[in-house]
Design a binder for these strands. Sequence first.
DNA 1: CTTTAATGTATCGCATGACTATATATAGTC
DNA 2: GACTATATATAGTCATGCGATACATTAAAG
Lengths: 117, 117
Amino acid sequence: MAKFNPELMRGSLDLMVLSILASGPKYGYLLQQELHSASRGLVDIQAGTLYPLLHRLESDKLIRCKWDNSTGRRRKWYELNEAGRKRLTVQAREWHEYAECIRNLLAPVTDAIPRPA
Amino acid sequence: MAKFNPELMRGSLDLMVLSILASGPKYGYLLQQELHSASRGLVDIQAGTLYPLLHRLESDKLIRCKWDNSTGRRRKWYELNEAGRKRLTVQAREWHEYAECIRNLLAPVTDAIPRPA
DNA sequence: CTTTAATGTATCGCATGACTATATATAGTC
DNA sequence: GACTATATATAGTCATGCGATACATTAAAG
């Protein structure tokens, strides 16, 4: 319902995916659902967005993957490696700095608006 | 120096420009400088980004403009209209909700990282 | 048993928009 | 005269999120 403007999420999706992967290995579909629930239904990353993103992270050598063909449903498991964990902390810090910057810019405007929970 | 990843700023630039315009009419070059100083040098929007953005806001009827040819340097002044002010408050609220969402997602990761000022 | 929905991965084409480079012109400084 | 700052504008490039589509398996519903 309260989905965000796609343009707003651009540049943060990587970070979200990395942060979900931080809690352990996931395959795509699972990651998609965990992100959805972790964001309380606010972020619903589409398959056409997720898989290219994962492939990108993989070719950037931030995650490693392993196929599981033991069942009829083939699953591709992704896991953060050392570079991925580092990227996550760096990008998280950058994001907080950015958010703080915007917050300051908006401060004069949002003084009249009730703060979010 | 500490410039942000362009992809990160995508989807927020409109909001920043609107918020700068909230303090009164500005022409492009002035707006660019005020945004730069208001963000303590962290945001440096380029001319090739700013002017198309302003034209977009104008064609969306969120700002009105007026040429000033009284001096040798022609300046195009931009001013928020009612729709623009409304858009600003709506987008600001949306941004805070989004930031809150990301903050929650990152919380498990950033527990070990010192909070920004 | 047949149909539908959910699971699971993947690619293609489209649209958006930020960037660099470039163009043009005036005004002030060295 | 040359260079920098001021001031606006457009063209081309690139990254990436999205919808549509494809394909295969499994579970649930009728």
